[in-house]
Design a protein around this nucleic acid. Structure first.
Lengths: 356, 356
DNA sequence: TTAGGTATTGAGAGCGCTCCCAAAAGAATG
DNA sequence: CATTCTTTTGGGAGCGCTCTCAATACCTAA
């Protein structure tokens, strides 16, 4: 139980204990060079009184806030509710807890917000560093402001200009390359793709992997089989609608969420999945497993991506951006039902999945 | 363009402008009683230099951090990735942006984390107030600590002990009451329920609405038709498996996510949805519409819940908790395919849904 | 016992801002 | 033009902490 509910200061504890403010500070911050019995006495009083150092005062004096920012620019605002971000956030917070940082979340909903946020995050005394989700053309302004303000930052998602910035990303290129290669090996001939937004590096990289895989195997790349999506379910639906006239027999869709929409469109056209049309997607979010046709998909380690980004950020705060570091994380092909592989080669199945 | 990249202080701006620190402070904080020409001159220098007041210094001097916390206790940790939280968070952040607050996010992943977090959020100088997701027995400790620390708080979800605390919640009771009544009106005789966790008020309230609706119509409440779930898809799946032997012809499931699992279980038992077994669920998250059987569900205004909670918090910070305020938000029944209503009474259909 | 060294402690000067109060400047009045 | 009142300005004292530096206490060995 606490004896004092009033706001205590270092000075108060010092008086109670009969030592100086400095000594109490040393105890609180676990510095060496405090006599054991003194430390014990001080700790006791802190314990009893429930003293907690004032965060603002500490930040002001030490120039460290122990708070990190996670910024979601306008460009991701409208698919913020995609589970991708929950998982990313979860990883980031986990790492924050581990390293005793507090996380501040910034989400721009309007152009106006974004300006406000840029001002807020570049201000001194609030954040020690910033994680920014940025792989979109429009995100350069935030990145630039952060550099100007000399704020340590790590970017999540390969940015368009990657010189002199740290970033962490999934290996989108090789991931989609694997996805499409898998479809080719299954014998599909007309393989289409629903891409992500093409003003983003994710969208571009996943598309590039698709093209590379086709080219490698001597397939020709057909414009009608490439439709741009926007990472939403309805986006996937309409993209698929648009592609259908080109008669694809398999499609690589750049996200699970879009795949759900794409499958809906395929079914409306009386196509059976995976018999008439096969799908491989990207992400391996929960929906991939709970969809009625379980999705074959490229798993990316989202939570780990968040953890890695945060730990890199801490490193950057400590050691600076010299040289800038880039971390690319591996993906993994998870075979389920939507690609039809199991019908041909049951030995590929995973124990977690069974044929229905 | 900024002239100075170095860290500016009020004093610097004062010197540049030839006025005192106090005057610059007045300009920055938009106080009256500054001569127009002086204000203009100061503003110009601020503009040119890109001066931003130091957040920590300001917080220390004014005892206001303009930062609010959003706390997710251990009890919600394992379904944090449910879209419910994304939407809630989105609403909260929107309101924060609007009112110029920064949001700090706290998520406890372990008991240890939770202790850490309690210490962190009750410390002075970090947060002006806190939003806590708490409707679980285990959450009382956080609420208590916050009261002890005299930290303004608003609870999201009716807490077990609601005396002297402010909270915002969905009307879970009347929502589930409506859901079950709808099923009764459709002529179902053996209506079961997959509840939420029963150590939470959400779980309890939704179950209570179910029981009330049955009782009102003279149905008897059968234990075998009430199975506890945990708000996850697999939880819904196993709950349903357990209920199946009792031969329900309709089920009210306490969340969309669980419903997906429940439907999976029903289908494994060769039951057709909604012909053999009807479902009504709760939430109206995205999954309700993109599931292959679109879900009839109770829509709750999650984003608005977040906004409301945050605005209440701001009010509490300004005016204190006297008297404590409780806000209950209305729900709405959204009829789609899983309840089978459309087959009986097409006039109930919504334009957004069509029969397949 | 004393010199020399090391471990422990306290004082003081900030960190950069807010906010009160008194001084200065300007307006209004007789 | 003096007097009073109002508006504008500057000085100073914090806010509660950290961190350097000098002072003191303690320990060792000669």
């Amino acid at each position: 139980m606490e004896l004092f509910l009033a706001d205590l200061t270092l000075e108060d504890i010092a008086k109670q204990t009969g030592v100086s403010r400095s000594t109490v500070s040393r105890v609180v911050n676990n510095h060496p060079n405090v006599r054991d019995d003194v430390r014990k006495r001080v700790l006791e009083v802190i314990q009893i009184t429930g003293y907690q150092p004032n965060a603002a005062a500490r930040t002001l004096a030490s120039q460290r806030s122990w708070t990190l920012g996670f910024v979601l620019p306008l460009s991701v605002s409208f698919f913020f509710t995609d589970p991708f971000f929950s998982h990313l956030t979860k990883g980031i917070i986990q790492a924050c807890n581990q390293h005793n940082y507090t996380l501040a979340l910034f989400l721009a909903d309007t152009k106006e917000d974004e300006k406000q946020i840029i001002a807020r995050i570049s201000r001194k005394g609030l954040l020690d560093g910033v994680l920014v989700q940025a792989g979109h053309h429009g995100d350069q302004q935030i990145v630039g402001a952060l550099i100007d303000a000399d704020m340590p930052q790590v970017i999540i998602g390969r940015p368009f200009r990657s010189d002199n910035v740290n970033y962490v990303d999934t290996d989108n290129f090789s991931g989609s390359h694997n996805a499409v290669t898998h479809l080719i090996q299954l014998g599909h001939k007309r393989i289409g793709t629903v891409t992500g937004p093409l003003e983003s590096t994710v969208g571009l990289d996943r598309k590039a992997g698709y093209i590379k895989a086709l080219s490698e195997c001597g397939y020709k790349v057909e414009d009608a089989l490439i439709v741009e999506g926007d990472f939403t379910e309805t986006g996937g639906y309409s993209a698929m609608k648009n592609m259908l006239p080109a008669k694809p027999d398999a499609v690589f869709v750049a996200s699970d969420t879009m795949t759900i929409g794409a499958i809906r469109a395929a079914r409306e056209a009386e196509l059976n999945v995976p018999d008439d049309i096969a799908f491989v997607s990207f992400d391996d979010e929960a929906i991939a497993k709970i969809s009625d046709v379980q999705l074959t998909t490229i798993r990316q380690p989202v939570e780990q991506l968040g953890i890695t980004a945060l730990e890199l950020l801490i490193d950057v705060i400590k050691n600076g951006t010299n040289p800038p570091r880039h971390i690319i994380m591996d993906t993994e092909l998870v075979i389920r039902d939507s690609c039809g592989a199991k019908q041909f080669s049951p030995q590929l199945t995973f124990s977690e999945n069974k044929l229905t």
